[in-house]
């Protein structure tokens, strides 16, 4: 009897541990957050939460703070991803050739990726220090005007993008290097026979064949970029005057410094939807361009 039942339902039995895990650790928190987004609650153990319907969402859509944060998130992510992809692919192509010291350089490239983001933030905070920091000392030595970096409303985002590019370009480069290694050599040989030059080979063979790999790297990086938190928090905490407050920082601040957990949950839900849309979009692009499946 039991073995019979097991045989018929074996696919469910094998999936059960994973399903349970997802239900408890992923689905439940998401549904709980969704529910909380309709309440007003300061996390008080004494005062219960209060049902306020869609009020949190209305405040959110009406408030300037949310739209500013959304724009800053978009600005930071889109510029970073473009720079990181271009630089990453260029570096990958450079290092995919056989050359002396390539291994050492590859290892060194890994270093920013493996360092703790908060310590990276603190190091850059020192580098960007306007009066005694390395960046301005360097500019001064070279005879340029010193800059305010993180202390200026207009320069703070470019400065943070520079940190992100420095930290994460190697990731795109490494994934692309792996992709280049899998490209067969015969298309190049036949192209050479047909008299193609190096640029033609790159645009008509290397790039198309690498597209799926690059798009995978971009998807992974994009998801992480939208959620960037640690380096920004360690350097500016969203300042000066909200100029670097991304959605993620705004949510953290709303929940853990202002104790508006209902509002933070509403923000989280919106953020969640935005992330899903981004992932779906990128997957669609990948299917069309990269010929996945």
């Amino acid at each position: 009897m039991i073995t019979n039942w097991l045989d018929r339902n074996i696919k469910w039995v094998f999936m059960l541990p994973a399903l349970l895990f997802i239900a408890l650790m992923v689905a439940y928190p998401i549904f709980y957050t969704a529910r909380l987004s309709f309440f007003e609650w300061s996390m008080s153990a004494v005062n219960p939460s209060k049902w306020i319907g869609l009020d949190n969402y209305i405040t959110l859509l009406k408030g300037k703070e949310f739209w500013d944060a959304l724009w800053i998130t978009f600005y930071h992510s889109s510029i970073s991803i473009v720079l990181e992809t271009i630089l990453g692919v260029a570096i990958a192509i450079l290092f995919s050739r056989k050359m002396a010291g390539a291994k050492t350089i590859k290892t060194m490239m890994m270093l920013p990726m493996v360092a703790t983001p908060v310590s990276i933030g603190l190091v850059w905070l020192l580098i960007y220090e306007p009066s005694i920091g390395l960046a301005n000392q360097l500019l001064k030595q070279l005879g340029f005007e010193t800059q305010e970096w993180l202390g200026s409303v207009t320069q703070v985002m470019p400065s943070l993008i520079l940190v992100d590019v420095w930290q994460w370009t190697p990731m795109i480069a490494l994934i692309t290097i792996a992709g280049i290694a899998t490209i067969p050599s015969d298309p190049y040989e036949s192209a050479s026979v047909d008299g193609a030059n190096a640029w033609q080979k790159f645009f008509h063979i290397t790039l198309p064949l690498l597209m799926p790999t690059i798009l995978t790297a971009v998807t992974l990086r994009m998801i992480d970029l939208v959620k960037t938190f640690d380096t920004i928090y360690a350097t500016t905490q969203g300042g000066p005057n909200f100029a670097s407050q991304t959605l993620n920082l705004m949510i953290f601040d709303t929940a853990f410094s202002r104790f508006q957990f209902g509002y933070a949950s509403a923000l989280l839900m919106v953020f969640f939807i935005i992330l899903i849309v981004i992932v779906l979009l990128l997957t669609a692009i990948r299917k069309r361009l990269g010929g996945l499946e």
């Binding site: 650790m25 992923v26 439940y28 928190p29 998401i30 709980y32 957050t33 909380l36 996390m43 153990a45 998801i223 992480d224 959620k227 938190f229 993620n248 949510i251 929940a255 957990f261 933070a264 949950s265 989280l268 953020f271 969640f272 992330l275």
Partner: peptide, 24 residues
């Protein structure tokens, strides 16, 4: 990292539920 951030609030919520029950 993505789920962690979202999870942090979620997790805090879950634990607070269970603990407030034993808190009394």
């Amino acid at each position: 990292m993505k789920l962690k951030r979202k999870g942090l609030v979620g997790l805090a919520l879950v634990t607070s539920l269970t603990v407030s029950a034993c808190g009394n």
